[in-house]
Write a protein that binds this DNA or RNA. Sequence first.
DNA 1: ACATTTTAGCTTCCATGGAAGGCAATATAG
DNA 2: CTATATTGCCTTCCATGGAAGCTAAAATGT
Lengths: 177, 177
Amino acid sequence: MEHPHPPSHPHSRPSDRVARIQADWRRERPDIDITPQGVIGRLHRLADRLTAELCLVYGRYGLGEGEFDVLCALRRAGEPFERAPGELAAHTMVTTGAMTKRIDRLERAGLVTRRRSDDDQRGRIVALTGPGRELIDRAFTDHMRNERRLLDLLTSTETETLEALLTTWLSRLENPA
Amino acid sequence: MEHPHPPSHPHSRPSDRVARIQADWRRERPDIDITPQGVIGRLHRLADRLTAELCLVYGRYGLGEGEFDVLCALRRAGEPFERAPGELAAHTMVTTGAMTKRIDRLERAGLVTRRRSDDDQRGRIVALTGPGRELIDRAFTDHMRNERRLLDLLTSTETETLEALLTTWLSRLENPA
DNA sequence: ACATTTTAGCTTCCATGGAAGGCAATATAG
DNA sequence: CTATATTGCCTTCCATGGAAGCTAAAATGT
């Protein structure tokens, strides 16, 4: 059941969950090459674990992931920290319907305001309030400290290699050149 | 605004979304080191893109991600393709409440059956039906072909390096040694 | 043997987001 | 200028999953 290699070999000792799933598949469907799961499965597993860690910090500020993203998008916009809902939806990759609800929650919490645009009466402008600005500045600082902690589980060489590989894959996925 | 490096340099030309976000933060919060986002942001972005691609295949078989996972867990179990709901929940990392609903949907579609356990009358046993078995065998074959296609955007060296890095990070995250 | 605790699965309620349609304001064609 | 199309946001409905509590069945202790 276990791998015969010594546990210190760099590539082995993957007695993790993904490896056990792969072993099951190899037994049940020996006709199929399931090696891609090694990468794709672990990538998703890792993303989930990281998300869980990040959400712990959002929660400390009373925010969910969605609200945090919106506040970040507003803060990143720079003075006067305003954006149209449609822009925010595009920036945070959700539908405008989802954005409406996020803004509802943030408005209810007093972190943003909504007003009509002057030049286009059907458009709205979402703006960070003082407390919103203050909150996201503290939360983001804490957030980056948290990401740094998670990243420090890798050496700087590993990090660089990983970032390069992720960037490569992502770009090939999005530009099917 | 754009990076001054030539676009062919291996590490640069990350004029992707994540890079633009980083540029915004550097302007707005020069006091904070936002390099961790380069890795963590792209990892999440990539995971999302991959998930979207994978869901296309699930959809071809009338399955959502959750249902697909459950059918896989049952199929992987081997003959007679049975498991308790609690086991399935543990294997697929959702709560038992979520599992109940997934099984409801699969049962309604005729892909699994539910019966009481003989030795423990409060336990249930979920079993793949004939059509369920047939469906997941076809769907999984197609799924792996799809994952292979996505993975082939990387060279085999890149793949190996990436898998090793993901495994390392995941293991350090889960065993805070 | 009986009462208590634990277990397994289910149910209910809530949170979040997508899809599709609605409404008011704006742009455009003739 | 008016009729139509488009745009921007919101609303409604649905799908999915988590949290917490419920019920029945087993395990445990006295």
